[in-house]
Simulated assay, not measured.
Amino acid sequence: MTQQQWTAVDDYFTALLTPHDEVLDAALRASDAAGLPQIAVAPNQGKLLQLLAEIQGARRILEIGTLGGYSTIWLGRALPDDGYLLTLEASAEHAAVARANLARAELPQAEVRVGPALDTLTQLVGEDTEPFDLVFIDADKPNNPHYLERALQLTRPGSLIVGDNVVRGGEVIDSDSSNPTIQGVRSFLELTAAHPKLTATALQTVGSKGYDGFSLARVTG
C-alpha cells in the first residue's frame, strides 16, 4: 500500500459519499491563499465529525484548534438552530480567515475566540460554563493532556471527546522519543486510559492525510 493509493481511496469515498460543496472548497482556498498550513482534516474525516456530532445529538460543541475553520464548518452543520459552537484559535490571523469562512457558511452559531487555548479554557471553567456535548481536540499536541483535563471540567456524563492525530505515523509507540509532540500524545492517551470517568478507544487511519488516527472517549460519570 502506498500514499498514492491511500489518497485515491479517500478521493473515491469523498466523491461517492460527500457531495461537492463550494462553501467547504472556498474555505480551503481561502486558507491556502492566506498561507495557513495545509493540515485541515480530510473531507471524509470532516464528514465523520459531523456524523459523530449528529449521533451525539450535540447542542453545544467545543473545538480546540480552529485553523481556517474547515472542521468547524463540518461540526457547525450538525448543530440545531439554537445550538452553539465555540472554537479556540491561538493565531489572530488564522482566526480572521476562519471567521470569514464561517460567515460564508452561514453559521452564526459558531464563535471564534483568539488566544492561548489553555487560558481560554481556564476562563471557561471559572465562569461555570454550561457543559459541552462534544469536544474536538486538534491543537498543539504537547498541551493535549492539559486540554483533556480542561475538557473533563467542561463536559458532563455522556459527552464525547475526540482527539485528532494520535498515531503520528506510528511514532506514538516510541516511549523514548524526544519529540514533545509524541510525548504529549502519549501522555494524553495514558491519561485517557487511566481516568475513572472515561471509557475510550483509539483507531489507526490511512488516507490523504497519511498514516495517523484519532481517539474517542465518552464521559461516563
Rank of each mutant, 00 (worst) to 15 (best):
G158K: 09
L160A: 07
I161R: 08
D174T: 06
I161E: 02
I182P: 02
R156M: 02
P180A: 10
V185L: 11
P157M: 08
P180Q: 09
G170C: 13
I182G: 02
E171A: 15
G184C: 12
R168T: 01
G169V: 06
N165T: 09
V166Y: 00
V172Q: 04
P180V: 05
Q183N: 13
D176Y: 07
V167H: 08
I173H: 07
Q183M: 12
G170D: 08
P180I: 08
V162P: 01
D174V: 02
N165W: 05
I161Q: 06
G169Q: 15
G184D: 07
T181R: 12
S177C: 10
N165M: 09
G170V: 07
V167Q: 11
I173V: 14
P157A: 06
V166N: 05
G170A: 12
D164E: 10
I161M: 03
S175C: 04
G169M: 10
G170Q: 13
N179W: 02
I182L: 02
S175A: 13
G163D: 01
I161L: 04
P180H: 08
S175F: 00
V167S: 07
V166A: 11
D174W: 00
G169H: 14
N179L: 03
V172I: 15
N165R: 12
S178L: 11
D176F: 13
R168I: 00
P157S: 09
D174C: 02
R156H: 14
Q183L: 07
V185E: 02
I182D: 00
V167N: 09
D174F: 05
D174K: 10
G170M: 10
E171C: 08
L160I: 03
G169C: 10
V172M: 00
G170T: 15
G158N: 11
D164I: 06
I161N: 01
G170Y: 08
N165L: 12
Q183I: 09
L160C: 04
R156Q: 08
G169P: 03
D164G: 10
N165D: 12
G170E: 12
N165Q: 13
G163L: 10
S175Y: 03
P157E: 10
P180D: 13
R156E: 03
P157F: 11
I182C: 00
I161V: 09
N179R: 10
D176W: 01
D176G: 07
G170F: 11
